Structures are given as structure tokens and as C-alpha cells.
Simulated assay, not measured.
Amino acid sequence: MGQVTVVGSYVTDLMSRTPHLPVPGETVLGGPFQMGPGGKGGNQATAAARSGSSVMFVTKIGLDVFGDEAMRHFEREGIDVQFIKRSGEFATGTALIAVDDQGENDIVIAPGACGTMTGLEVEAAEEAVKKADILLLQLEISLEAVEAAIKQAVRHQTPILLNPAPYLAVPDEWLEHIAYLTPNETEAKGMTGIEIVDRTSAQKAADSLHRKGVDTVVITLGKKGVFLSKGLGIGKQIEAFPVNAVDTTGAGDAFNGGFAHAISSGMEIEDAVQFGQAVSALSVMKEGTAVSMPSIKEIKAFLTSRL
């Protein structure tokens, strides 16, 4: 069992089904409504914990009912909460999510407390980074906070898995320290300027990232699977597991949490990608984000049936 530390966002998801996603100015009657734990950091921490890792989560939430429910969720999942800061000044973040009949979604995030995380607050949680087999980061918190976590990981020689989502321009010098980078097609284009339309363009994008210092590039391609590149010109396409998607919200988080668990547990990279894809496939077959993350029992049964 690996030790995964997640430094990232937590928001409460407020989700409703809708026949179709509204266009600007349109009101759509939807339902039912569902509330639950979310945020990229919270989703990934939950996915890693349910996959079997010991997880420490570094985030910031409010002293409100949403924050109370967040703490209950983490404790139910066995996630170490000692480095979660609670703020009396800022409310717990929220995400307003609409999911249509095809499982596609629109999301509006109000970051709240987690959006105010500072570098100093992350530095106060250095022990969590020091103890980790892998540090999992996203870009839903301030770049100052992300940079503080990267510096700690470099100091303690902790491998870094960066999921560059939602896409933001990041300093190239960060990439020199990234062991695993997991952009989707949009994020890869933002980081490289290369539109991914086939294997050749995926390799060009991966090579651009390798030249900036990234060790392993894992480009997630949704239903088309994953493009894995372990070095310049050394890439391969790994097909996705076909499933009937109910709700694709959080699919990328599911992959990253499962992948982080697999890497921290010592799996070979191709097996880790397959594991992450299994977690993602199972998650989209249920509604919700963190609550849709599968258990290790479900993941093992799925992989046994599909491989």
C-alpha cells in the first residue's frame, strides 16, 4: 500500500440532471438534485483512498455545514485530515454541476476557502509531502500554493504527479521536476500549442513536454484511452475500457487518483495506466464525483473481467 499525499482543492458538488445543457439565457427544468463531496483534490484523494492507498490531504475548507460534511466524508474514507485547514473567514467552495442525458456536463466552480490557500499554509504541511511515495497536484488552487508543494517535494525527493487541470499556463521550470504529467487533449494543446488528432501529433506534444523536463507524459483522451510516452519518441496508445457512461463528471480525477495509487504501490507504468483507466471507467457508470469512485474490490473484479 503506497502513501499518496494530495495537495489541492475541495468543494461541495451541487449537481442536477437536465435533459440537455442550457444555452446562454435558457432555463431548463432538471432533477433530481444531488449534493456531495468534490473538487479535483477531494475527488483524487477519495479515488486514491478507495483504490487502497494511505492518503494525506492538504486543503482548506470553511467552518460551515459544507466543511463539516467534508470532514465526515474524509473520516469515512480513512483519509488523514491533520493537514486540512479550516477557515472562519472563507466559506467552503462549491461547484454547480449540470449533467445531461448523454452524461456530458457543465460546471461552474466557486473556490471559496481552498482558493485562498497560500504558500505558507502549504509549507506548514511539509510533513505530508516528506512522508509521501508520490505527491499528487492539480491547478484548482493558487499557483503560489502549488509551487510551494513542488519545492517541498524537490527538497524531500518525493516524485510529483501533476494533473494540469483546469488548464493554466505554468512556469516551464516546474516541469523539470515533474515525474508524471497527466494532461487531457485540451491541456496538452495549451501547454505545447499542438492539437492532438492522432498518434503522431500526440507524440509531438509529449516530446515537447519531455524536452521541458517531464519524465513521463500520460495524455488522457477520453473514450480513445491514453497516450503514454516514457521518453522522446517512445509513446504508445493504450485503449480505454468501453462502458456505458452515466455521468462523466470527475472521470479525469478518478484516473489520476487510481494512477497515483498504482504508481505509489510500485506497479509498472503500463499496468498503472490500465489501473487508472479502470477506476475512471467504473466512476462514469455512476452519478456524482467523489461518491462515484470505486472500491478496490470493484476495481480488481473489473480488471479481471476485462483483461
Results as ranks from 00 to 15, higher is better:
Ala153Arg: 00
Arg86Gly: 06
Arg50Ile: 03
Thr216Pro: 03
Gly42His: 04
Asp247Gln: 11
Val11Asp: 05
Glu77Gln: 15
Phe74Gly: 04
Lys131Leu: 14
Thr116Tyr: 11
Ile134Gln: 03
Ala281Ser: 15
Ser87Lys: 01
Leu228Val: 07
Thr304Phe: 10
Val197Thr: 15
Ser53Tyr: 00
Phe74Cys: 13
Thr220Trp: 11
Val246Thr: 08
Ala153His: 01
Ala169Gly: 00
Pro294Thr: 04
Met117Ile: 12
Glu195Asn: 13
Asn43Met: 06
Gly8Asn: 08
Val99Thr: 08
Gly25Phe: 10
Leu221Glu: 02
Leu120Glu: 15
Ser229Lys: 03
Asp80Val: 12
Ala70Met: 14
Val279Tyr: 04
Pro242Gly: 08
His210Trp: 07
Pro183Met: 09
Glu185Gly: 04
Leu137Glu: 07
Gly2Ser: 13
Phe227Met: 02
Gln34Thr: 13
Pro37His: 09
Gly252Gln: 08
Asp101Gly: 14
Ala205Cys: 10
Ile219Thr: 14
Pro294Val: 04
Arg199Ile: 12
Gln237Gly: 00
Asp100Val: 05
Ile196Gly: 11
His210Gly: 10
Val81Met: 12
Ile296Val: 12
Thr192Glu: 08
Ser54Ala: 14
Glu173His: 15
Pro166Asn: 03
Glu26Pro: 04
Arg306Gln: 14
Glu127Val: 10
Ser51Gln: 01
Gln34Lys: 12
Gly78Arg: 01
Ile178Gly: 04
Ala128Ile: 08
Val246Tyr: 12
Glu287Val: 09
Ala113Glu: 02
Val214Ser: 12
Glu298His: 00
Lys40Pro: 08
Gly115His: 02
Phe33Lys: 07
Asn163Cys: 00
Ser283Glu: 08
Glu144Ile: 02
Ile269His: 01
Glu268Phe: 11
Ser283Val: 06
Leu282Ser: 09
Gly258Ser: 13
Gly266Lys: 03
Ile196Leu: 14
Leu282Asn: 03
Ile238Asp: 09
Gly8Ser: 11
Gln3Arg: 14
Leu14Met: 15
Val23Glu: 14
His210Asn: 05
Ala262Cys: 08
Gly213Pro: 05
Phe259Gln: 05
Met71Ile: 14
Gly193Ser: 03
Lys230Gly: 09
Val58Asn: 03
Leu143Cys: 00
Thr18Phe: 11
Gly88Leu: 01
Ala202Ser: 12
Ala48Gln: 05
Glu89Val: 13
Leu175Gly: 03
Glu104Leu: 01
Val28Gln: 10
Ser292Met: 06
Ala95Asp: 10
Arg199His: 13
Leu96Ala: 14
Gly39Asn: 06
Val28Trp: 13
Leu175Lys: 02
Tyr10Ile: 14
Gly190His: 07
Thr200Cys: 07
Met267Asn: 04
Ala128Asp: 09
Phe90Gln: 13
Tyr180Cys: 03
Asp68Asn: 13
Ala179Cys: 06
Lys212Gly: 06
Leu137Phe: 09
Lys130Ile: 02
Ile299Leu: 07
Asp101Val: 06
Ser9Phe: 11
Phe66Asp: 13
Leu162Met: 06
